[in-house]
Amino acid sequence: MDVTQTHVAFDLEIGSPLISCRFDPAGRFVFAGAEDFRVWRMPLSDTAADSERVELITDSWVRGMTFADSGETLITGGTDGRLIWFPAGGDASQGKIEPVRAIEAHDGWIRTVATSPDGKLIASAGNDLKIRLWNAADGKQVGELSGHESHIYNLAFHPDGVHLVSGDLMANLIDWDFAAGKQVRTWKAESLVKFDKTFLAFIGGFRGMTFSPDGRQLAGSGITNVSNAFAGIGNPSVVVFDWEAGGPATIEHLSKGGLQGVAWGVALHPDGTRIAAVGGKGGYLLFWKAKEAEDFHRIKLDNDARDLHLSPDGLHLATAHHDGHLRIHRMEAEAEKVKEPKPDAEKS
């Protein structure tokens, strides 16, 4: 991998503005939630025919997607408060995949869903300020966690299978012992929230959240240094916490020169590189080294990014864009293009 050689490997056009993206754990497909009230499944290939693109009708905007059953099941969380189970690898011959199950999970938006490390539980967070735990196999509720006082923007299971962390609009974090249903500790990412005195509203929260594969770091992404909430004037930010120590972030990754926008998605690569996708005033991919506040590499994207996902092989990034394109980036040098032979007429 060489992130400085990152390039668009292929570009999948959905048409409707995109909201979210996730790779299939088995590396067969990539899924994208769109403003057309659907999730789209596409083969991971730039040569796939349009007919291989499959729609999953969700009747809502889907920001949260997670997988269960070793990647065979996709669970979506939508703005209608429903969780829907789909067969991730389902037959595409009809152009769409029917859901297996849909449940009324929350009163208000679901912004985020996650699967426990053992694959048995699904966690969802809603605008009803609740986190609910569901049996991945049958969709039955098995737990509920209450404690947030503002909308919950993101959550992630710790790889140890004991802890779940959730973050809200006010940039508060809660570490849960989810089996016991208890809060272990709380803390706050001060830089990721602000009350705009002109517009009389709070802006902030965790737009992206992830653990490092070894569980030693927790990263959250969003917007900081906001000078105008309602125009979205502020800088993308990634804050990284030492999981054991908790407390203030060990580092806040910002952009060289102060790009404007929101870091809508964050990834912690196993090699230590921190990556964010930015949207708001143009799209960017930003790359940081663990101990450096400013990005050491960036890529200007063709359009504002709204989500980011790192592929299971650690070599690709998916970015969901407002222009309706899902872009798959490969983090290594581009293979030399084979030049097509010129038509005979031009040879002479």
Binding site: H151, T198, F199, L200, A201, F202, A229, F230, A231, G280
Partner: peptide, 17 residues
């Protein structure tokens, strides 16, 4: 009642306001 000038994140802000 202020404010609804939501060029950014219209949906979150309308939800709050």
């Amino acid at each position: 009642h202020s404010n609804y000038d939501t060029h950014n994140e219209n949906f979150n802000f309308h939800h709050e306001q």
